[in-house]
Design a protein around this nucleic acid. Structure first.
Length: 124
DNA sequence: GCTATGACAAGGA
DNA sequence: CTCCTTGCCATAG
């Protein structure tokens, strides 16, 4: 079990009901600034036990194309939480983006400098 | 260790 | 805005 995967899953678990985060955001907070694709892969494999549907791409689109064996589509799951997703699988990510508090970030053992970087990018 | 593969991101055309 | 290219890096084989 790699640390990265643990952090990613831990973070996904912390995304509040009705909020969303981008793959890049999760990767960044997990400590790998450009590991967005890995987040997708991790959720693809372990997603079953975590709220994977709260993770979307940074363009505000649901880029998931493989939900064949899912009873509900990602869009349905989000709609149930009050997140508005149109028929083109798009939503206003800035409206629903999860902004983790500094406590959460510190628990991930990231140095202050790195946390500043994260804040700068997603708290503007 | 090396190559191939992405549920991505960002910038250019 | 959409399409394409390049950069990325954890995993699988």
């Amino acid at each position: 079990m790699s640390k990265f995967r643990n952090k990613v899953l831990e973070l996904v678990n912390r995304i509040p009901y009705g909020k969303v985060a981008s793959y890049g955001q999760i990767a960044l907070i997990a400590g790998v600034a450009r590991g967005a694709r890995q987040v997708g892969h991790i959720l693809h494999v372990n997603g079953g036990d975590y709220p994977w549907w709260r993770v979307i791409n940074n363009a505000g689109r649901l880029s998931t194309t493989v939900l064949d064996n899912q009873d509900k589509s990602q869009r349905d799951l989000l709609l149930e939480e009050g997140v508005l997703v149109n028929e083109n699988l798009e939503l206003d990510i800035e409206e629903y983006r999860w902004r983790p508090d500094t406590e959460t970030l510190k628990e991930l053992q990231l140095d202050d400098k790195y946390i500043e970087k994260v804040m700068e990018k997603y708290f503007s």
